[in-house]
C-alpha cells in the first residue's frame, strides 16, 4: 500500500508543475499564498456557519440562511485552497508523506472534516426549522469547528517538523 503511495508521490514530483514549483524560488510562496487565500474563504465561511449553529455571535440570521448565502464563496474558497495545496504537495510529495503530521492531516483529519462539512451543509435546514437551532445542530457545529481546528493543528505540527526549508 505504502509503495503505491510513494510511487504516486514520485510521479507528482516529476510532473511539469511539480518540478516547476520545486525549481523556482518564487513559485513555492505563490502556491502557499493561493493555499492561504483559499483557506481564508473556506474557513471564514465554514467556521462562521459552525459558530452560528453553536449560537456564538448569533444575530438575526439563522445558520441555514448563512450557509445558503455563503455557499458559492465557500466552495470557490475550497477550490483555490485545494489548487494551492496540490501544487505544494506536487513539489515535495515524497518528503511530505514521510511526515506524521502531514499523513494525519491528509489521510484522516481533512477527509473526516470534509465529510462532516457535507453532512452539515445538507442537514442544516432541518436543524434550523424553528427559531432555535436544535441540539443536534449545536453539536454538529461544535464537531465541525473542532475538526477544522484539528486539521490546522496537524498542519502546524507538519510545518514545525518539516525537513524541507525554502529560502
Amino acid at each position: 500500500m505504502y509503495d503505491v503511495v510513494l510511487a504516486c508521490c514520485r510521479w507528482l514530483e516529476n510532473t511539469p508543475w511539480g518540478a516547476t514549483v520545486r525549481g523556482s524560488s518564487w513559485m513555492y510562496p505563490i502556491a502557499l499564498w493561493l493555499h492561504f487565500v483559499g483557506l481564508s474563504m473556506w474557513l471564514g465561511t465554514s467556521l462562521a456557519v459552525d459558530l452560528r449553529l453553536m449560537g456564538v455571535g448569533a444575530r438575526r440570521q439563522t445558520a441555514a440562511e448563512l450557509s445558503n448565502g455563503f455557499f458559492a464563496c465557500n466552495w470557490i474558497g475550497f477550490g483555490v485552497a485545494f489548487l494551492g495545496g496540490f501544487l505544494l504537495l506536487s513539489a515535495e510529495a515524497t518528503t511530505y508523506v514521510a511526515n506524521t503530521g502531514f499523513r494525519l492531516k491528509l489521510a484522516v483529519l481533512t477527509p473526516l472534516a470534509m465529510i462532516w462539512h457535507l453532512v452539515v451543509q445538507r442537514k442544516i435546514r432541518l436543524w434550523t426549522q424553528t427559531e432555535q437551532t436544535s441540539a443536534i445542530g449545536k453539536w454538529a457545529g461544535l464537531i465541525e469547528l473542532s475538526l477544522w481546528i484539528s486539521v490546522v493543528t496537524a498542519s502546524v505540527g507538519f510545518l514545525l517538523t518539516n525537513a524541507v526549508i525554502h529560502a
Binding site: S40, M41, G44, A48, C73, I149, V152, V156, G157, L160
Partner: peptide, 22 residues
C-alpha cells in the same frame, strides 16, 4: 507552546480575513 500559538494565529487569521473579505 509555540505550536499552540501558531494554531491560534493561523485559524483566527483565516477566519478574520475570510469574514472581512466576505
Amino acid at each position: 507552546l509555540y505550536g499552540l500559538v501558531s494554531v491560534v494565529h493561523y485559524s483566527t487569521v483565516f477566519f478574520g480575513v475570510g469574514t472581512i473579505v466576505l
